[in-house]
Design a protein around this nucleic acid. Structure first.
Lengths: 312, 312
DNA sequence: ATGTTTTGATAGATAAAACCTATGACATTC
DNA sequence: GAATGTCATAGGTTTTATCTATCAAAACAT
């Protein structure tokens, strides 16, 4: 049994097609066929049923493929250990980030990061939490930046900071007169929400305690695709919306007048780096963690006066 | 990186000597040298300091050797998965068993076992619990039969049965007149104990609540090497001792008169199969578990009226 | 039904590697 | 300073992984 055989085995399981799996492994189809056969001979069991189209793993094949994936993951850790020990921060890393963080958090640390670690090839994708976790589990991402806690025991969370929710409202709103607002001050019919799929949507419904009513009476059908759109809606059509703290960074003076913080304990979301429990690329992830924390204000790093709102 | 290289690496760490490690791997010293070098080149780090004698792993070498051991263990599981799936019970298994169980438990199931599974090469060694756990952790044993709970989180325990402690005493003892005895009935000065190292010793001291006094006043200096010796001592010199239930199996009628059970809840020990958390040879161990349970009376398989005594 | 395409297996040649024997370099010991 | 112990190196041999070319069977299309 060789690592190469295990790679071919896993590729064949992924593609369910000898030629495609072989191409993915940068070898010819007979090479991959032979090695899979050799492995089957060595173990004394058929791993794939080739009579089916596409080929499917046998019952025992499934089990062995699972262990093969584990072995390949653990073998990749050896290079990880070396990188970490030498302080080498290099290689490709695939990062997923949710849309309500991406435009505000990425500009803060990304420039620094790519300048400081020129050997890292960074691939960032914007995804909803659900898509992100799914890709993480399929090993199509190395790390994610999402709102936690997720309660998924395959996933490790490194909390980065706590971000307050704040209200953004037009002069025409009653609550505009108040210095600090309460969830009761928010008129459900005036509330602009993001469309389904964004985790922030569920949290805002939780803040406003609209969970149950929501399903029955839904007389707000205003659903935006981004935080920036929400702001524009309030500015053009009046009403109220709820924004995460980092999105306030580049408001104009006039816009700032429309911001109202909540009464303490203010609703807050926990933002974390998340990765598979047995994750790789430790040194790059560690570097990224440090770089993010460097640009986050101290007071956001602990949740002192906030109340973390549960997810959807 | 190949599995063979990892094997050589681990062997070199074990023997700290190229020629010996090579011999252990059934190759010549240059072969092993070359492969270790190739691995070092591939990873870009020196794994061993060859200037020392014996050779020692470098700091990073230690980390990588640890991961290599994990990889080899996990790779061995692949054949384990095949064996289990096919119901093959074959191969070598190294079993450790404590001396207070060995002479009573082994004869009960071993004959059956080796007849039923002729392809298993069984190696049984009698060891104290401490020695056994140490060998298990060094991968010099596959499974142990000991008294639990051990409270060692590297180890998995499969409880097999609950064995009562009973008193064995001479006619001259006061307690001989009673039908059931209590721990108070045992005269510490008349008590025969096994020498240090046997886990049963600590349990008996716990039963008799002699723990604290023990260290100060120890006017019993009678320490036997085996359960059988304890019986002889009582028979020849009088006094009392405490035996595990299975050792009563082949007492003569006369000897049986000297047995007294404890009042319920009677002191009991839990006997378990123990193995490393990530153990191998699942199918053999499973077979052994079944065979042992087959020869143990039903009533011993649950701890109904007993009180499990803590270890040492 | 028959020709075409797709898919995986097989055969023979080639390139890469793992391994062996023999020997060299260096340090330690007597 | 010769002998010994230890690991590295060199050159040749065997083994193995891979490639190209081709075959056989099944699926698909005409």
């Amino acid at each position: 049994m060789t690592f190469v055989q295990l790679e071919y085995l896993v590729a064949l399981d992924t593609y369910r097609h000898f030629a495609m799996a072989a191409e993915n492994c940068c070898v010819t189809q007979p090479t991959l066929s032979m090695q899979v056969q050799k492995l089957e001979d060595e173990l004394g069991v058929k791993l794939f049923d080739r009579s089916k189209q596409p080929v499917v793993p046998t019952e025992i094949g499934e089990l062995i493929i699972k262990q093969a994936r584990l072995l390949l993951r653990e073998s990749a850790k050896i290079k990880d250990i070396v990188d970490e020990h030498r302080g080498t921060v290099a290689g490709e890393i695939r990062v997923g980030i949710i849309p309500t963080l991406a435009p505000y958090l990425l500009p803060l640390f990304l420039d620094n990061f790519i300048k400081k670690y020129p050997q890292v090839k960074l691939k960032v994708i914007e995804l909803t939490t659900e898509q992100l976790i799914s890709k993480l589990n399929k090993d199509l991402l190395d790390v994610g930046i999402v709102v936690t806690p997720l309660q998924d025991d395959r996933i490790t969370e490194f909390p980065l900071f706590y971000e307050e929710f704040v209200a953004y409202l037009s002069e025409s709103e009653k609550a505009y007169q108040k210095e600090f607002i309460l969830s009761e001050d928010i008129e459900p019919n005036h509330l602009w929400l993001l469309e389904e799929g964004h985790c922030i949507r569920g949290q805002i419904l939780n803040i406003c305690e609209l969970r149950k009513q929501n399903s029955h009476m839904r007389n707000f059908e205003y659903e935006a695709g981004s935080i920036e759109t929400l702001k524009r809606m309030v500015e053009h059509y009046g009403g109220i919306t709820i924004l995460p703290e980092l999105s306030l960074r580049d408001l104009t003076e006039k816009q700032q007048l429309q911001v109202r913080h909540f009464h303490a304990p203010s609703p807050t979301r926990e933002v974390s780096l998340v990765m598979l429990r047995h994750h790789l690329k430790k040194s790059i992830i560690e570097a990224m963690k440090t770089e993010i924390l460097n640009v986050i204000p101290e007071k956001m790093k602990q949740n002192i006066s906030g109340k973390v709102i549960e997810l959807g």
